[in-house]
Computed example of a mutant assay.
Amino acid sequence: MKIRYTFVAAAVIALGCVGLAQAQEKTLRLLTWADYAPADVVAQFEKETGYKVELTLSNNEEMISKLRATGGAGFDLAQPSQDRIAGPQTEFGIYKPMDLSKLKTELFIPSMLDATKINTTVAGKVYGLPHIWGTDGLVVNTKLAKMENYTDLCKAEFKGKVAYRLKRPTLLAFAFASGKDPFALYSNPKAYTELMDEVGKTLTACKPNVKFYWDNKDQLLNGMRAGEIVGAMMWDTGGWKLNNEKPEIQFLAPKAGALGWIDTFAIPAKGKNDAAAYAWINFNMRPEIAAKVAGSAGNFTASKGADQLMDAKLKAQFATSFPEAALKNIKWYPAVPAGIEDIEGKVLDRIKAAN
């Protein structure tokens, strides 16, 4: 009798494992940014493919942390920025190479696809594909302030009236504004440390001008709406959103160049459903779907032809913020080598601790 019960129990467990495996085969566990998987797009994907999407919202730091903690398990598809793939992959091995044969590469803007493949290649293998892109620059209330470069945020006349993040993009922006190219120094830790130390001194001296170091978009947008903040370093979509509400608030590409980022598709090393991941990528790069996602995020997309389906007002705002010279002057983030963020972290800690 005991043997029979053992057999039955084993059979139940086996059936349970089969059921779990089947559920995993029909589920896409997606680790992504807010607004990159709008409900109507998810619903259409689920209806067309039969996959169920499990959504986890995150950011670059959290994505790396989650995947590092599990060795690349827990998710089938992630969306880190292109500069956050090669370094973490080299250090932690948290992604698996892309199988380009499973992709409809004709759906991508060729130049953006080629550039992202180069920036996400490790040991001859590609680990990322482009999805959504945008920039960081200056958002200025033109009735209350005149600014042309990041360092204008530190002018004495704007004491207590500006905001920016105490994060690496601010360090890089101020480095470019000082006339240096921080990206060119990535391979020289000593020179990079010296440059970051100089930027740290500038930002420490600038602290009296900072109303707050923003860490969520509502805090920043509300500060700009209320006139508490007359200028900020922030992303383009936030500036265009405010411009819709108050035409005097404008997103400007600084003289030193806006910082350009590309968020990607990357497949975690221990993802269990690559088929669902590739299905989601190909689905999202269809122009009509890409336009919906871009509209939700308020940014532009690497999907070929999607720009023709974008909101006319957003296209006009983009054209105003980025005349041809400013577009050519965008500083695109390259891959971040190991150790660079440790250097930056120490400088940010010193700025935070300074009186």
Rank of each mutant, 00 (worst) to 15 (best):
A338Q: 11
L28D: 05
Y213N: 13
M234W: 08
N60Y: 04
F183Y: 13
D349K: 15
K313W: 12
A276M: 12
I94S: 00
P189Q: 09
E91W: 04
M112A: 11
R168P: 09
S81R: 01
E324Q: 06
K102W: 07
T202L: 15
V139P: 00
L100V: 10
Y192I: 04
N119H: 14
A338S: 14
F283Y: 12
G124R: 02
F183T: 03
P38A: 14
E341K: 15
K352N: 15
Q250N: 11
I267F: 02
A145G: 01
V122L: 03
A39M: 09
F251Q: 01
L28S: 08
K66F: 04
L138K: 09
Y333G: 05
T151S: 09
I351V: 14
A275W: 02
I281M: 10
K270G: 05
V41G: 09
P254L: 06
G128C: 03
D215C: 04
L113M: 02
A34V: 12
W33I: 04
S65W: 13
N284R: 07
T142A: 12
M196Q: 11
I64A: 06
A156I: 14
N216K: 12
A312Y: 10
L185W: 06
D83S: 15
K102Q: 14
T120G: 13
G179Q: 05
L252V: 15
D152C: 09
A319S: 13
K201T: 12
G74D: 04
S111E: 14
E228L: 01
A163H: 03
I343F: 07
A205I: 03
L129E: 06
A258M: 05
S321W: 03
M233A: 10
C206E: 00
Y278W: 11
F300Q: 08
R68Y: 08
L314Q: 14
M1E: 15
T320I: 13
K180T: 14
S58K: 07
S321C: 13
E148V: 09
G305R: 10
L30N: 01
T6R: 13
